[in-house]
């Protein structure tokens, strides 16, 4: 089958404004959108730029808007989107070139919530054990691959880049609800801010966009409740 692709293009060295280029690619229904981009780059236009790494939905490099919604190009099949495909960069981050965006603001928000384990003892002599039930509490949010599909699908983030965003909150959730972690109060303080949890208006774009099917809005809801009640149960 022939697939018509319309791809967002912007070259900061030559273009004043972004534009779209059209390509026609011969594809199988089970080909991924990333396969089509690779074909175009190899055989039709070597200048097209996008991020990719593992190509198996694990590294989170190739988040982009595919037919108007955030997806990983390596996880979307041609049969899922049809023969007319529009590919654009994710929204709300500065566009470096074509489908590549500057991820620094995203990672700055991520870093602001202390996304690392803070233990109680300085030199623990043995493992800090945890019950399966306690581990289950934050299991969903351990799956994040930092692709930014959730954060850049959020209208609150589009409106204000200072909003910490769904991905950072998912990663805060992962440690706040870890029974062994000791820095929940500090993380909740960061999130109990005008650019924190209350910018979430339960629009659910993040949950729909997440390629790992994390219940992002529920994680944010847990954080809102923890802040409101000062309890983690």
């Amino acid at each position: 089958m022939k697939v018509k692709l319309k791809i967002f293009r912007y070259d900061p060295e030559n273009d004043k404004k972004p534009h779209y280029d059209k390509f026609v690619v011969e594809a199988e229904p089970t080909d991924r959108i990333l396969d089509l981009l690779e074909w175009i780059k190899d055989y039709q236009d070597g200048t097209i730029s996008y991020r990719r790494s593992c190509a198996h939905g694990v590294c989170g490099s190739d988040a982009m808007r595919i037919n108007g919604v955030n997806r990983l190009a390596c996880k979307v099949l041609v049969k899922d989107v049809g023969t007319k495909v529009t590919v654009q960069p994710i929204l709300g981050l500065p566009i470096e070139k074509d489908l590549i965006v500057d991820m620094e603001p995203f990672f700055d928000s991520y870093k602001s919530v202390m996304p690392y384990f803070v233990g109680g003892e300085e030199n623990p002599q043995k493992e800090q054990l945890q019950s399966p039930e306690d581990r289950e509490r934050f299991d969903d949010t351990t799956k994040c691959i930092l692709c930014a599909a959730c954060t850049t699908s959020c209208p609150s983030f589009w409106a204000n880049g200072e909003y910490v965003g769904p991905a950072a909150m998912v990663n805060a959730h992962r440690f706040i609800f870890d029974s062994r972690d000791q820095a929940a109060a500090e993380r909740l303080k960061v999130l109990n801010d005008q650019y924190g949890v209350y910018r979430c208006h339960t629009i659910f774009n993040c949950t729909d966009a997440c390629p790992r099917e994390i219940q992002v809005t529920q994680a944010i809801g847990d954080l809102k409740k923890a802040i409101a009640t000062s309890r983690l149960d």
Partner: peptide, 25 residues
Amino acid sequence: MALDRRVGFFEGLKYKGGGPMLAWI
């Protein structure tokens, strides 16, 4: 130079968020 991060009103509306986004709008 990178393109500005700002998202236009109509560009935002074009995002296909489905029913929940429609409810928010």
